[in-house]
């Protein structure tokens, strides 16, 4: 007796049924699904902590993440192999997720940081902060603003950034602000993976071919001047360190440097010398003074949102 073929169940598949189902947002990768990133979280500022300073601090960390995510998005369809396309997008997604949490924290800690739009604009605070602040209001470091360059430059930037951010977020897990502590605890897991991904690539490129080594050395030379800025402190950080809210920039930088020096040594790479950028004594990204690259990056990122200040997306 011949077996009856099973009924072609897929024929009944209604491709549109998925449109009306709710609650499956978790299907999206890496935190892209939530609408209010801090929904249900107590966002009151802890007693004795300075709300405006906390907001300014969260904007610094959020701006770093968003600007680097934007740079990583520029790799899309240009990565050296399809698997790296996926990897770079994962990192970008993590950073956008961190941005949203940090902006939401900033807006809750001090609503006055959120740009005002014409009445009736439905843009949520996180989007006002991302799309309606000019370069002078951004507080990111110069490192993340620099253009992508080749894959070696992207790897060098990423390993420096992730190593630094890991030391910051690692310390912030014990911040006196419970929201920042929770956001950091989540971020540590992500950023550790970013650092390991980039560190592994750095060793691979350093030890690969003559060409990959040459490109890696060139990338280190060109980006290293932006490393010094990561160790600087600023008024906001200083005040919050004293309150037990922020991470000590100098201590975090020391750990970062130690990691990077070990890594370069393992790859047989020389630590570059050369004058730091922004030049010592001049205000850097944390004070709103940026390299020329940030302006064009923001212009591209913000164009559509600004053309439709009352738009719904």
């Amino acid at each position: 007796m011949a077996p009856t073929p099973p009924r072609d169940e897929h024929d009944e598949y209604d491709a549109y049924a998925g449109l009306v189902e709710a609650g499956e947002e978790t299907r999206w990768a890496f935190g892209s699904g939530f609408d209010d990133p801090l929904a249900g979280v107590d966002v009151s500022v802890p007693p004795g902590a300075d709300g405006p300073a906390l907001a300014a601090y969260c904007l610094m960390l959020g701006d770093d993440a968003l600007v680097l995510a934007q740079r990583l998005a520029q790799w899309c369809t240009r990565a050296p192999e399809l698997e790296e396309e996926v990897a770079l997008a994962n990192i970008g997604l993590d950073l956008v997720g961190q941005t949203r949490l940090l902006y939401a924290r900033a807006a809750a800690a001090d609503p006055s940081v959120v740009p005002t739009l014409p009445p009736g604009s439905p843009a949520p605070p996180e989007d006002r902060l991302a799309f309606f602040r000019g370069p002078e209001e951004y507080r990111c470091v110069w490192l993340v603003e620099q253009p992508n360059g080749d894959f070696a430059a992207t790897v060098v930037r990423l390993v420096v950034f992730a190593a630094w951010r890991l030391t910051l977020l690692g310390r912030l897990r014990t911040s006196r602000d419970p929201v920042l502590a929770a956001v950091s605890a989540k971020g540590v897991k992500e950023v550790r993976y970013h650092r390991d991904y980039a560190a592994r690539w750095l060793l691979t490129l350093a030890g690969g071919t003559v060409e990959s080594r040459r490109r890696t050395e060139a990338a280190l030379e060109s980006l290293w001047p932006c490393v010094e800025e990561l160790g600087r402190t600023d008024d906001v950080s200083e005040r919050l360190v004293a309150d037990g809210v922020a991470a000590d920039p100098a201590a975090a930088f020391e750990d970062t440097s130690a990691f990077l020096h070990r890594l370069l040594e393992e790859g047989g790479l020389r630590v570059p010398t050369g004058s730091p950028e922004p030049a010592p004594g001049t205000p850097g990204g944390r004070l709103g003074v940026h390299s020329p690259w940030l302006g064009s990056l923001l212009e591209e990122m913000q164009g559509i949102a600004r053309a439709h200040p009352a738009g719904r997306w």
């Binding site: 990768a29 892209s32 609408d35 520029q74 996926v86 949203r100 949520p124 591209e300 164009g303 997306w313």
Partner: peptide, 18 residues
């Protein structure tokens, strides 16, 4: 991806293209 007008849309589009 680089011009998405909200952070939520940016994240969704990144996940989709990925």
């Amino acid at each position: 991806l680089t011009t998405a007008p909200s952070l939520r849309r940016k994240a969704i589009l990144m996940a989709k293209v990925q």
